[in-house]
Design a binder for these strands. Structure first.
Lengths: 251, 251
DNA sequence: TGACATTTGTTCGTATATCGCACAAGATGT
DNA sequence: ACATCTTGTGCGATATACGAACAAATGTCA
């Protein structure tokens, strides 16, 4: 790509949108300049442009994102076939298992939920399409990392901020690579309270007919309701059959 | 705002993202130029910029959005206090009523879901935070329109593409304005299969301490499970108590 | 309270990057 | 092999970004 094929004003604007997050909901021009590293004048122009288009609100002092921003992410969910294809199967899976079922894809070091059938709240945080979790300590993340070439997976693990969320969390590169080997061999990943105490989940890859892993699906439950062995016994066969149906529908 | 405070390259880029939707998941440069009305050269630069930043994938012929795009919408959901605040209360509400509970805000002619606790699938389409429905024929839309000044509501109704989704759907401006009066007077809106046959819902406004309506919450169910009268009797008191708790937490 | 320091927002001239057009090159279908 | 449609490129005109200077608001201390 040539230098002139890149619209830096557009790229800067997008970084301004991403400057808003959990801890930063009401931002001044200076705040945005500091977070994004843009010049104050440029940050101001991006923010005023967002406000002019209705993507942000401005009270003269602080900017906040407006619900119109959701159109942007929603473009992906409605335009990509996979989320719409898997949703009904996750509903079925959740129905059959009596637990929450989800599908996700990899984006950098994180998994991104693309569809979900939540049966009942099991986690402290709420998960929706668009939600993100670190790949290294989630069942779907392990499955998706295991599908990558070894050095690619290692690179992502090294890049990840590997925090021990619980005493169970694996954080060592060697441990995690071992785990990925195991996942690759057995065809599924089980997380036993590595993300949050009391939370277990099991995930398997979804491959297209060419054998490429395009997504992962999982079932999550409370640790008190099922041991690791019980999860494999109870959920894995149903998940695999669901997965096979999905695969047959993927071009 | 001065002319030079608007970054047209940014605005054009955002319109390119929105060009992708349900019917348009894989778009060529020419497709995007046609949909957005941009010059082909401009559309191409926007698309290449998106691809360079990882927001889109390019196979040399077609562009598709990548899951990274979801960060943009997610910026809103995580940075705005309201969605995170209401979520646990929707969970409770769904638990108590045994039905799906949601919260939404108005964006133009549409309501946008900002949080949801889905108990079991009742609709043919799947609803998630970010999902949109026309305001004129949804219970939360009626509540949010009723909170606007009369002429503002009329303007939105006139702007809406008022389709009769079912034989029950009200599509006349006068009918709808009457309905808004009723909603305003009684403090709740009930939709009896106007959006989809078999689907009923009841919504109430959520106001902040200053009395401004900031959102609507609803409970939806299947028509066979509850008549309109039964919905009001069964769900309204619980909803109102949930709403009062939320209001007390809103600054 | 008033003077000073500091932070934040806005304006401006200029260097530079982007836009839109016209044309070239390539792909597709008949 | 031709017509048609799509994609890529070069260039002059124009719009944008930068950095600094200015203005306004906010905070600090005697």
């Amino acid at each position: 790509m040539r230098e002139t094929d890149f619209i830096s004003g557009f790229a800067k604007g997008l970084s301004v949108i991403e400057a808003f997050d959990a801890g930063n909901s009401r931002l001044s021009i200076t705040d945005v300049a500091r977070i994004t590293g843009l010049e104050r004048a440029t940050a101001r122009r991006c923010l005023l442009t967002l406000a002019e288009l209705g993507y942000a609100d401005y009270d003269g002092k602080f900017f906040t994102l407006s619900p119109r921003i959701l159109r942007l992410g929603h473009s992906y969910l409605t335009s990509t076939p996979l989320p719409r294809l898997v949703q009904p199967f996750l509903d079925q899976l959740s129905e059959k298992t009596g637990e929450s079922a989800s599908a996700s894809v990899l984006d950098g070091n994180e998994i991104v939920y693309i569809a979900r059938a939540s049966h009942k709240r099991v986690m402290s945080i709420n998960l929706n399409p668009g939600s993100r979790l670190p790949a290294y300590c989630s069942s779907m993340g392990r499955v998706l990392l295991a599908a990558l070439p070894e050095d690619e997976a290692r690179r992502i693990l090294k890049n990840s901020n590997r925090v021990a969320n619980t005493p169970n969390t694996k954080t060592g590169i060697a441990d995690l690579l071992d785990e990925l080997h195991r996942v690759r061999a057995q065809g599924y990943a089980v997380i036993d309270q590595e993300l949050e105490i009391g939370l277990c989940s099991i995930a398997i890859p979804v491959r297209n007919v060419r054998g490429t892993t395009v997504s992962a699906i999982n079932v999550g439950t409370q640790a008190v309701r099922a041991s690791v062995g019980e999860m494999i016994e109870r959920y894995l066969p149903t998940m695999q059959s669901t997965r096979d149906t999905i695969t047959s529908l993927l071009v």
